[in-house]
């Protein structure tokens, strides 16, 4: 059986998910997640090596659209919903680090 989730795991996952958790939250999430994952033990025990995964309940393939221009959104309507806009763009605080 896989190891129950540890506090360090929870902190790492919080970082991956961009969630700032309080001390309290880290503690009870560690417990709760361990409990939920513990229940997944019944699946872990199954031998499913020969079973293919189902990513889609539908047997569809090749759903494509034509390369034709459709109207775009009105910029003003979109930027009106932005928390902060500048120069017709979405403004964010400084970015540390290049894109991966």
């Amino acid at each position: 059986m896989a190891d129950p989730i540890s506090r360090a795991d929870v902190e790492h996952v919080a970082k991956l998910s961009r969630l700032a958790l309080t001390e309290d939250e880290v503690e009870h999430l560690t417990r709760e997640l361990a409990g939920i994952l513990g229940h997944a033990a019944d699946i872990e025990a199954l031998d499913l090596d020969d079973v293919p995964a189902t990513a889609h309940p539908l047997p569809l393939v090749n759903v494509l659209r034509e390369d034709e221009v459709r109207p775009s959104l009105d910029r003003a309507e979109v930027l009106a919903q932005a928390p902060l806009a500048e120069d017709d763009r979405f403004r964010v605080p400084r970015i540390l680090g290049e894109a991966p």
């Binding site: 969630l19 700032a20 540390l96």
Partner: peptide, 27 residues
């Protein structure tokens, strides 16, 4: 910085069940 803003926004904006499922799913 933007990452800090993301994390604080999501912490304030999501309730406990949503956070629980995001954490579970990410894991």
């Amino acid at each position: 910085d933007v990452a800090d803003m993301n994390a604080r926004t999501r912490a304030a904006g999501f309730g406990p069940e949503v956070k629980r499922r995001i954490m579970l799913g990410t894991y």
